[in-house]
Each structure stands twice: as C-alpha cells, then as structure tokens.
C-alpha cells in the first residue's frame, strides 16, 4: 500500500540521516582518541596496536550510537517539521490496517501531502556543520602534532594493561634483565686455563651450634672441584671463547 511505503520511506530517510550523524560522531571519537594517545604518549599494551584498539572502540561506539538513534524514531519528528502533516501521520500509522473509506481517504490525502516531504526537513544542518568543523579541527591538530612531534608529559603507564593478560609478569622480567646487565656491565671472558677455583668463606657471628663450629675459626680452606663433568665444561667454554675471538678477528 502507498501509505505503508510512505511510512517506510520516512523511516529509511530518518535512518540515513542518523547513519550520517553516527558516522560523524564515530569519526570525532576516533580522532580524539588518536590525538590523546599520540600527544600523551600513551601506549596501549597487549597483543593489539593503538590503532586496533581505537578502531575497535570506535566501532562499538558507532554500533551503540546508531542503535540508540534509530530507536528514537517516531513519526512525530516529521510532524514537528511539517505542520501540514500534524496528527495525520500519527493517525495513518495507528490505523494502517483499516480498510474503510474514511481511513483510505486519509491515506490518500497523506500520500498527496507527503509528496513534498523529504528527509531534508529533519536534517539538523547546523549540528552536522558543527560536527564537520570539529572533525576538520581534529584532523588539523593531529597533523600539526605529528609534524611538530608534540608530546605532553603524561603518566608513565600503559593503557589497557588488562588487554595483555599475563604481560605484567613478562614486563617485570624484562626490567630485571635490563637491570642485571646494567649492574654487571658487559660480560667478559674469564681465563680458566689451569686454574683452581678457590672459594673463601668467612664466617661471622657467634658459634652456637656444633656442626657450624668450623665457621667460628678464621681459617682459609680450599675447595677443589671434584665434579666429574667440570673438565668437559671447561673445554666447552674454552672452545666457545676461542670461536668468539676468531669471529672478532675476522671482522
């Protein structure tokens, strides 16, 4: 029926307008997020990159915003903007199943009157212009901050640490390794050729137990390696060290 088509057309036009609005909103959200992440030097940790996380968040925002806007649809919006349709659209919508003469006459009049009605009447032009300007400004700021490499000192913390799952442990491990290398410096080869390893342990404190009585005396003792595999290890270390030297020499 014509009037059903008309009502469907009006709804589709409303959805189209709100789709456009939602796209603009989503772009603003993405650009603001992107700018914030860049200028504050925030790092989104985990298996996803900053771009992926922002894109995902924007998509979710887009979806919910679109659903929210579409659910707000009612024909009263058209009636507000088109006084000639006031009460007629609502009446036609509520009596769409009626086949009697009066209802059909109403539908005919509605189709005739609504011919001039387009989605333009419900387009919030000013709002859209404002949003486009905001998007333009955000794009400019993004380019500007990129060119001048603007970074604002922000909190030294990663965004969305929970995205990484057990990455917290890995991070600590990494820090430990770095600290260890800083403390110990570059590793150097030791000469172990024909040398005995000597350990000197000096005991301090009071003698309290018999089995540790030897600690109480300040004496030197030597521990000889008696491990069966030590000679092999020494040999392996020697070969490794020689190979490294050859490699350095060849460079």
């Amino acid at each position: 029926m014509k009037v059903e088509k008309l009502l469907r057309r009006l709804k589709i036009e409303f959805i189209k307008i709100n789709f456009l609005q939602t796209c603009l909103d989503a772009m603003i959200v993405f650009l603001i997020g992107n700018l914030a992440v860049y200028t504050l030097d925030l790092e989104i940790t985990g298996p996803y990159s900053n771009f992926h996380v922002l894109a995902g968040f924007t998509s979710v925002f887009f979806l919910f915003d679109l659903i929210y806007r579409v659910r707000k649809y009612n024909v009263e919006l058209y009636e507000e903007k088109n006084p000639e349709l006031n009460e007629i659209l609502r009446t036609a919508r509520d009596n769409i199943d009626n086949k009697n003469i009066a209802s059909q006459a109403l539908f005919d009049e509605l189709v005739e009157t609504a011919r001039e009605v387009t989605s333009e009447s419900i387009i919030p032009s000013q709002e859209i212009i404002k949003k486009v300007l905001v998007i333009g400004a955000l794009c400019f700021l993004t380019i500007f901050s990129g060119l001048l490499n603007i970074h604002i000192e922000g909190p030294d913390q990663a965004l969305f640490p929970e995205l990484g799952g057990d990455n917290e442990g890995n991070q600590e491990q990494e820090i430990d390794v770095r600290n260890g290398s800083q403390i110990l410096g570059e590793p150097t080869d030791i000469d172990i050729q024909e040398r005995d390893l000597q350990f000197e342990i000096q005991g301090t404190g009071e003698a309290s137990e018999q089995e540790f009585s030897f600690n109480t005396e300040d004496e030197e003792f030597t521990v000889d390696s008696t491990m069966s595999g030590l000679d092999e290890d020494r040999e392996l270390a020697k070969r490794y060290s020689d190979s490294l030297r050859e490699l350095e020499a060849s460079e």
């Binding site: 009460e87 609502r90 009446t91 036609a92 919508r93 509520d94 009596n95 009626n98 009697n100 003469i101 009066a102 209802s103 109403l106």
Partner: peptide, 12 residues
C-alpha cells in the same frame, strides 16, 4: 455508520 469509521490516532 461512516462517522464511526473516522480514524483517530492512539495518543489522541
């Protein structure tokens, strides 16, 4: 009979 058929919107 015709009068009864005049459509009315639900909110009205």
């Amino acid at each position: 009979e015709f009068t009864r058929e005049v459509p009315i919107a639900d909110d009205i």
